[in-house]
Design a binder for these strands. Structure first.
Length: 553
RNA sequence: CGGGGUGUAGCGCAGUUGGUUUAGCGCGCAGCGUUUGGGACGCUGAGGUCGGAGGUUCAAAUCCUCUCACCCCGACCA
């Protein structure tokens, strides 16, 4: 390709709206163009990279035994109502009405369609297992698209679905996919970290996310510096160290005038925060819920949501708390009636805690579980933080940001049961098919690749996904020898099917070098009168500082 | 949806207390010339329904009302 003809120009100034590095660089390099919020057009440079990524994905999916199919983006809403997931997706589902007044959804994912598909093509255990995949455009009406290609409303995704006869088969399929994903990210030059993930409202036994560590990542991930434990903070567990407290003593009321926060109360009574119990209030599907957690810990809303069976939750307002007859700032789990109480299991990590007395300016000492109060549920709803102890090895946990580029999920039989995708096993019994689903965001992967591979000059493409392998930079185009040499090299590489970009513009060296650095093609070859005198050209890898003189022929 | 912000040429911006404004500047774009090893310079030129609709006024980019789009911070996800 010749730069003079390449569709898409490099910009010197970038639109003010871009603040993510990958977004800025893609706009500057003329790779993408925004058409609407979270909707992008991909210009040749971006499209070439996307195709490279897709081909790596296809190759690995095929190697793992997957079969490629293509399902429609347009899906009857009925199908979503049948599975009940129209509610789970809610506003995120793009719904439209056709001329016959039928409702259709633009597919945000394809579990329903693929399950229907399998239902009519699988009857016997002999038809299993199956690994079906596609690379296809998904539509999700995200509440807030952001970060360029990091989070869009229309995006290309690899989605593979596994269908097995038993758990052992699912495990096998799952492991194949995990392996394939590892290969994909490695081949793309991206060190992805596999972390345990929350499996969400649908349930299921296991879920993992593949994360790229990046400042701009939207997810917090917790890793252990002593072992391989890694989890999304939504899921991350940690050891709740014992805080002691001795034999349970009788309850004692103490005056704590004006002390509302844990910090204030602990300071006032001169007890460590971890020896207090904190009350937090949430509204879950419109109902007030009383949360009790050790004072030094924070509530993990995802864990809480799961403990509440997937309810919609938000923090309750002071007014809502007062209305329920509780005293914000001094609320007590003791004697609460008619309100659901969920406690973090940290309440069992010690004795004689300080807690609210449900009287203004008053707290209680020596509060003990289960002597003084009995929550409806006691489970882990605490948020792991850097410095906490690892559940696997006791080592120190660390926190970092990650971009989620892949996600694997043991779905189980939820969908096959509701949609009636069953098979007959060896003993002639009808059973639901056991499913798994696996996704990789292709555009996001492209953006993440840039997030991880750039410098202040521009992109530094990993070779396997680079839009071109070689960038020819002839300097002083008015010199016919330069042009001849450049054209010759260009033709040579083309005849060998090497992807080569020729900067045939009559631009100054500075412009060409800067554009070359911006576009980030791995190998730059400079052709100039200076080096031609020595019958040589200059080569430079994008990630290296100095160029090398290389003899021609 | 809650909070904050922005819409003026392909991009970055100024102009916004109504009136020399024929709406400017820089980059980019076209032509000519001089240059050129890390985003050169001069001259000439093209490019705008000032997001949209309605209103106030002798006069609106500028004031009022409504509306649309986009960005950023929070709840969701590949």
């Amino acid at each position: 390709m010749r730069v003079s003809q390449l569709f898409g120009k490099t910009q010197r100034e970038i639109p003010a709206e871009a603040d993510t590095v990958s977004h800025q660089l893609m706009l500057k390099a003329g790779m993408i163009r925004q058409v609407a919020a979270g909707v992008y057009a991909y210009l040749p440079l971006a499209w070439r990279v996307l195709k490279n990524i897709e081909n790596i994905i296809r190759d690995e999916m095929d190697k793992a035994g997957g079969q490629e199919i293509l399902m429609p983006a347009l899906q009857p809403l009925e199908l979503w109502q049948k599975s009940g997931r129209d509610r789970a997706f809610g506003e995120g589902l793009f719904v439209l009405t056709d001329r016959r007044d039928r409702k259709l959804a633009l597919g945000p994912t394809h579990e329903e369609v693929v399950t229907e598909l399998v239902k009519y093509n699988v009857q016997s255990y002999r038809d299993l297992p199956q690994l079906l995949y596609q690379i296809q455009t998904k539509f999700r009406d995200e509440p807030r698209p952001r970060g360029g290609l990091i989070r869009t409303r229309e995006f290309s995704m690899l989605d593979l679905y596994s269908f097995d006869a038993d758990e052992a088969g699912l495990d096998l399929s799952y492991n194949k996919m995990v392996e394939a994903y590892r290969n994909i990210f490695e081949r793309c030059g991206l060190p992805a970290v596999m972390v345990e993930a929350d499996s969400g409202a649908i349930g299921g036994k296991a879920s993992h996310e593949f994360m790229l560590i990046a400042e701009s990542g939207e997810n917090e991930i917790i890793t252990c510096n002593g072992c391989t434990y890694a989890a999304n903070v939504e899921k991350a567990q940690f050891i709740k160290t014992k805080v002691g407290g001795g034999e349970p003593l009788p309850l004692e009321e103490v005056s704590t005038p004006g002390m509302a926060s844990i910090e204030q109360v602990a300071g006032f009574l001169n007890v460590p925060e971890k020896r207090t119990l904190k009350a937090v209030f949430y509204m879950a599907d419109g109902q007030l819920v009383f949360i009790v957690i050790r004072g030094d810990l924070a509530v993990n809303e995802v864990k809480l949501k799961n403990a509440l069976g997937g309810a919609d939750i938000r923090l309750a307002t002071h007014a809502e708390v007062s209305q329920a007859g509780l005293v914000p700032g001094a609320a007590s789990p003791i004697g609460v009636e008619g309100i659901k109480v969920i406690a973090d299991d940290s309440i069992t990590s010690g004795t004689n805690f300080v807690a609210g007395a449900n009287k203004p300016g008053t707290h209680l000492k020596n509060v003990n579980y289960p002597r003084d109060f009995t929550p409806d549920t006691v489970t882990d709803i605490a948020r792991a933080r850097a410095g906490d102890k690892c559940v696997k090895c006791g080592g120190a946990l660390q926190s970092s940001n990650g971009i989620e580029v892949g996600h694997t999920f043991k779905l189980g039989t939820f969908l096959s049961e509701t949609l009636g995708a069953v098979f007959v096993d060896q003993s002639g019994v009808s059973r639901p098919i056991i499913m798994g689903c696996y996704g990789i965001g292709v555009g996001r992967l492209l953006a993440a690749a840039i997030e991880q591979n750039h410098d202040n000059k521009g992109i530094i493409w990993p070779k396997p996904i680079a839009p071109f392998q070689i960038h020819l930079c002839p300097l002083y185009m008015e010199n016919p020898q330069v042009v001849t040499a450049a054209e010759k090299l260009y033709e040579e590489y083309r005849s060998k099917n090497v992807e080569v970009l020729l900067d045939d513009r009559p631009e100054s060296p500075g412009v060409k070098f800067n554009d070359a650095d911006l576009l980030g093609i791995p190998l730059r070859i400079t052709i100039s009168p200076r080096s031609l005198e020595k019958n040589s050209i200059e080569t430079k890898w994008r990630w290296e500082k100095e160029s090398k003189l290389q003899p021609l022929e």
